[in-house]
Design a protein around this nucleic acid. Structure first.
Lengths: 358, 358
DNA sequence: TTGTAGGCGTTATCAG
DNA sequence: CTGATAACGCCTACAA
């Protein structure tokens, strides 16, 4: 045993540096071992798996740890084990309220299960996303991708290195959490049909959005079932501004009801139509998707197909953590668990009975 | 040199585990050293400080590193140095849109400067906040506290261990980023005065909110200057719902204009007043604070005193990172740098000329 | 059940 | 300018 200097003494006496390097309790398992009168390795055992040590030694060690208010050094632990107790969350756009609830859901389960969450955004770019993902790979145990913009192969490549859970998209061989659009959409379309509408327009989202495609499919199917005509319009970007821009096409389409890829588009569309003197919902009904924060601030309040985003976030985190702990069957071969959550129609004032033209 | 086993061979040959432990390139400085024909320590030097090694060796090493697509192991690095290239951000409420921009601002500068951001929330609780902060201390180089709910002493205690930057509050001896309310408030009050108002109410926020106190002071001062009467009302919570609840008191107060602690309160208040048949701004003017997402969705759109939240987030991150790199003077004694950002009035439809009662 | 010893990948201190 | 060598704090066979 070489003891070149007494580190503990130095630690307590010298407040030379403004910030102590370790920052926390700077007590190590060696200190505990000394206090408890056992070997450091025994301390290590006692503190990781509560089974591999005698009851009395256990208590001895735990007391010593408490007294020194010991906290493991995550880095020292990560080095030999590779486990970091950290996972990453990458969202497409931090300022898009759609992701707020996802972030919160994930963060909540993270702290609940004593994990740390690292956040990054892709700014709606597949390239940025990939970069962010790579950056993270070094420091996390797993990754959650919310509405990823990179392609399936990139995702699978990443998933080969570390467990990955995807939200708002289905990727073969990767566990996913996806809202099942059908229920919500059929409720919406049925409501529209019941209110005398015959032609509905769907304003699509970004081309690389998996969800947009699903929603359009859902709208088509529901319309067919209700014998409504469905037309598809394109948007420039899935924002309020994009909604404003598409108003022109909406009017030209002749549809009396419109579903938009997301609430942001719906809000912008509504603003623009109202600015042009149209009365909602008397002349045209508008239905959004997601039920984001603020969807009920508008006049009239926005009817929307709600996705339980918070649930998606916490669900994804739970899935990932279970995966990490091996609590989950890894599935047969490449079959991965995919968690489906329900959507539902939230009926507000922006949709309703179509008044006869006057 | 003890070489019990050849680790590199084992690493490349055995894809036994589904996920490789390191996840990334698993090349170490030893591999590089071997390829470049130098000593590992030389590699370390070359890769950290570009000055301490001869130009040719430098290039040799860099090439080898590139070839093996080497990436440092953050944990191995953190162990001897204590530096993690990570900072934490704790916000009072993840779902409160006020923090969205702060989060984004901080995250953006983080990735820009090659840092990783860890996110946590306090759920508006000082205790939770302290816990979260302690948890983080072990893994981060510094901390940003956005609208902290714990008391000054706790903050200072933490700040003694690691650099801390506070947003939306001033704490002695701790660097802070705070919006300077005066400009925005005086613009607002002046506008109100010019529109024939004589009595304004201020709806306060949470008692432990530093910002709420500042805003009330600002309102009082501005009103005095403009010779308006100012009354203060209390809210139960700083949310839309809290705004609805305070509507009663607002009407009872006899004020014809009201400023609320934040936009959420303003929106709720507006909804409730309108539900009671009041016309805004003809009968009463409403002004919020912050200019959050959705503030312009309301009817009428909300007039508000905007704080540049994104700037606060990025400003705080920049401050922290500069502090970390010693680029900033630590101030004389306990004097810490505090960054002030301007606020401004955003005039929209919810405030305006008071119509004679009719 | 507990102690011993070596290693995880980097940095830092000393010699040379 | 470069090479050896000892930490950093924890984990884990292996041995006792």
């Amino acid at each position: 045993m070489t003891e070149p200097k007494t580190p503990d003494a130095a630690a307590t006496t010298g407040p030379a540096k403004k910030h102590s390097r370790s920052g926390k309790s700077n007590a190590t398992i060696y200190d505990i071992a000394k206090v408890a009168g056992v070997n450091p390795s025994t301390v290590s055992r006692a503190l990781s798996k509560p089974g591999r040590v005698s009851a009395k030694t256990q208590k001895l060690i735990e007391d010593a740890a408490a007294e020194l208010n010991y906290q493991v050094n995550p880095f020292a632990r990560a080095l030999p084990t590779g486990r970091t107790n950290t996972f990453g969350l990458i969202v497409a756009d931090i300022t898009n309220p759609t992701f707020f609830d996802i972030i919160r859901g994930a963060e909540t389960t993270a702290t609940l299960r004593d994990y740390t969450m690292v956040l990054a955004e892709s700014a709606e770019s597949g390239v940025t996303e990939l970069t962010a993902a790579r950056r993270m790979m070094a420091t996390v145990d797993g990754l959650i991708l919310a509405s990823p913009r990179m392609d399936d192969d990139d995702i699978r490549t990443i998933a080969r290195d570390k467990p990955v859970v995807v939200i708002n998209r289905e990727v073969d061989g990767v566990p996913c959490v996806v809202p099942d659009v059908n229920k919500g959409i059929s409720e919406a379309v049925r409501s529209l049909a019941g209110n005398g509408h015959h032609k509905v327009a769907f304003v699509a989202g970004p081309p690389q959005s998996w969800m947009s495609a699903r929603r359009w499919e859902g709208v088509q199917a529901a319309c067919e079932w209700s014998r409504l005509e469905a037309v598809r319009l394109e948007s420039t970007k899935p924002t309020v501004d994009g909604g404003r821009q598409v108003a022109r096409d909406v009017r030209a389409s002749g549809a009396t009801a419109v579903l938009t890829y997301n609430d942001l588009l719906a809000i912008g569309l509504m603003q623009e139509l109202q600015a042009a003197g149209m009365v909602i919902p008397d002349q045209i009904s508008i239905v959004g998707f997601d039920d984001i924060f603020g969807a009920d601030f508008t006049t009239p309040p926005l009817t929307t197909v709600r996705s339980p985003l918070g649930e998606c976030g916490s669900g994804a985190a739970t899935l990932l953590l279970d995966l990490l702990h091996g609590d989950l069957p890894r599935g047969t071969g490449e079959t991965a668990a995919t968690l489906r959550v329900e959507t539902e129609l939230v009926l507000r004032g922006s949709s309703g009975r179509l008044l006869p033209a006057g």
